[in-house]
Design a protein around this nucleic acid. Structure first.
Length: 169
DNA sequence: GCCAACGTTGGC
DNA sequence: GCCAACGTTGGC
């Protein structure tokens, strides 16, 4: 096989899937819908940050509402930008300010996320917990609190199937 | 609002 | 490097 084709195959990658948690009181799927493209910032956990960094532009995002009455997946987005330093880490007035982070060596990362759609009905956490196909999700792993987490293609397919079944798409 | 589970910090 | 204390997350 010609080297140029090998190169192009290497560059082409499959879309990956991720789940991003947010507290709707501070930033909700409706906020993202209004903004069309929103900055995903305030991630202050190293593992979550590393997942945020390892995303590829174009990856699919499930938007999850946490710490609310009806926790669950509320919408879909897409990774819009490359990773860049989270500006809130340098903002003394921000709750996400981090004195340990230096401008020349930023600790924390943000990305822009494009709104794709808001679900007609959310896929609630309790529904996710009921489905054997979704028991592998990081979301339902005991003690897991990761705010940025990978979703496998199988899990994503199962979620889409469930959303179609309940006419939420 | 409670609290279990987890991550981070800092004394030693 | 251990681990107690503390802070945070997030479901309930």
């Amino acid at each position: 096989m010609p080297y140029s084709i090998l190169l192009s195959m290497k560059k082409r990658h499959k879309t990956a899937y991720w789940l991003l948690k947010t507290e709707p009181e501070s930033y909700s799927i409706d906020d993202l819908k209004n903004q069309k493209v929103g900055r995903w910032d305030g991630v202050r956990n190293f593992q979550a940050r590393n997942f945020l960094r390892s995303m590829t532009v174009g990856d699919t995002i499930l938007i999850y509402h946490s710490s609310t009455k009806e926790t669950g997946i509320y919408g879909i987005g897409e990774v819009k930008s490359a990773p860049y330093p989270d500006p809130t880490q340098f903002d003394r007035k921000s709750p996400y300010f981090d004195a340990k982070s230096k401008v020349l060596n930023p600790l924390w990362t943000a990305r822009d996320i494009k709104f794709i759609k808001k679900l007609k009905k959310p896929l609630l956490l309790k529904e996710i917990k009921e489905k054997p196909q979704l028991e592998s999700m990081v979301l339902v792993k005991p003690g897991s609190r990761l705010s940025v987490q990978p979703v496998t293609p199988q899990e994503y397919r199962a979620i889409v199937w469930l959303l179609k079944a309940k006419k939420a798409l």
